Simulated scan of single mutants.
Amino acid sequence: MKKIVSFILTVLISSFSIAQETMTFQAEIANKNGNKLSINSGRETIQKIEADAKGNFKATFAVKEGLYQLFDGVEYANLYLKNGYDLKMTMDATKFDETIAFSGKGSTENNFLANRTLEESKIDFQGMLELDAEGFKKASEELKAKQIASLEASKIDANLLDMLKKGTEANIGQLQQYYTMSLAKKKMNNVAAPNFDYENHKGGKTTLESLKGKYVYVDLWATWCGPCRAEIPSLKKMEAAFHGKNIEFVSVSVDAEKDHEKWKTFVTEKELGGVQLYAGKTVLSDFVKAFEVNSIPRFILIDPKGIVVDADAKRPSDPRLQEQLNKLLN
């Protein structure tokens, strides 16, 4: 009898162990962007899920405990996954972040992440970066304290709590570094911009000196730069909105020499407007070095006298750029 009981217990324990080696993820998505979901860890896809006949998603798989991203082909959502979870997500893809909700085992952690994403979207990081040193220090300390307090008040998994605390520390540190960099960029404000002499897509060369008499909005970009390309539609709208005004929109490509023809083709095929220039061998010209350009896209606004208005100007997609230009040009 003991042997039979022992055998049954062994089977039950083994079955329980197997069940805990996987997790289940389900999703019901209204107005979905496609019939496929992927769960990613950085650039690696660890699970692909296809919609069933009813348009819903379900998969059972093994996972290493940790933070992941759910990608629907258009947008991302953060997930915390581990084996043993039985997680169900509902969402309306037209209001992606605002409607994500989880139920089932693991829902506490994932609802917390969803709410955290919404809260972070309300933070005016750009406004913080425009504060003076004392104001920025106070704002960043308050933000850190608020986020840590929210974590400590939560009832999330201890491992996730530890991950998010470390992540908060790292994010605040990166924000402080970015603020230091933004201060360095601003040192060019209100001084004369160095001249440049770059190849023009339409032929010949164009200098900054030749553009005096007009405001000049410079876009430093490259064909390989995703964030740069993402700004192109907004830049086109900006050019159209200020057509005929006293401003030139100047895009300067910093593509490598091997991509010179690629740049020329890209400009033509994408029908890029404004003044399209190529820095080429002069990419490290006095102009670029003076502004300490270490990342792109980078935008610079110069006045009709050649004086720098903003060495780290707003992106075309930022509504505040149009507000600024309206004040200057109207």
Rank of each mutant, 00 (worst) to 15 (best):
Q126C: 07
Q126P: 05
M128A: 04
L129C: 08
E130M: 02
E130T: 04
L131V: 06
L131G: 11
D132Y: 12
D132G: 07
A133G: 05
G135T: 09
K137Y: 13
K138I: 00
A139W: 14
E141Q: 13
E142C: 02
E142A: 13
K144H: 12
A145T: 13
A145S: 14
I148V: 05
A149S: 09
S150I: 05
E152K: 15
S154N: 04
S154E: 11
K155S: 09
K155E: 10
I156S: 13
I156A: 10
D157G: 10
D157Q: 03
A158N: 11
N159W: 02
N159F: 07
L160M: 09
L161E: 08
L161T: 12
L161K: 15
D162A: 01
M163Y: 13
L164E: 14
T168E: 06
E169Y: 10
A170I: 06
N171W: 03
G173Q: 04
Q174T: 14
Q174A: 13
Q174S: 13
L175G: 14
Q176V: 12
Q176S: 14
Q176L: 06
Q176P: 08
Q176I: 11
Q177A: 06
Q177N: 15
Q177P: 12
Q177W: 02
Y179P: 07
S182P: 05
L183M: 14
L183H: 09
A184T: 10
K185Y: 02
K185V: 00
K186R: 15
K187Y: 11
K187E: 15
M188T: 13
N189A: 02
N190E: 13
V191K: 15
A192F: 10
A192G: 08
A192I: 02
A193I: 01
P194E: 12
P194D: 10
P194H: 08
D197C: 09
Y198Q: 01
Y198P: 00
Y198C: 03
E199Q: 07
N200L: 12
H201F: 15
H201M: 11
K202R: 07
K202M: 10
K202I: 09
G203M: 09
G204V: 11
G204W: 06
G204E: 08
K205A: 11
T206W: 00
T206R: 01
L208D: 03
E209W: 00
S210H: 01
K212T: 06
K212W: 00
G213D: 05
Y215A: 14
V216W: 00
Y217A: 03
Y217G: 01
D219T: 05
L220S: 06
L220N: 02
A222Y: 01
T223D: 03
W224N: 08
G226A: 15
G226I: 12
P227S: 11
P227V: 12
R229Y: 01
A230G: 01
A230T: 02
A230C: 02
I232A: 07
P233C: 12
S234A: 15
S234V: 07
S234R: 01
K236S: 15
K237P: 08
K237I: 09
K237F: 05
K237A: 15
E239P: 03
A240T: 08
A240V: 05
A241N: 09
F242S: 10
F242R: 10
F242A: 08
F242H: 07
H243T: 05
G244V: 04
G244E: 08
G244S: 07
G244K: 11
K245E: 13
K245F: 11
K245R: 14
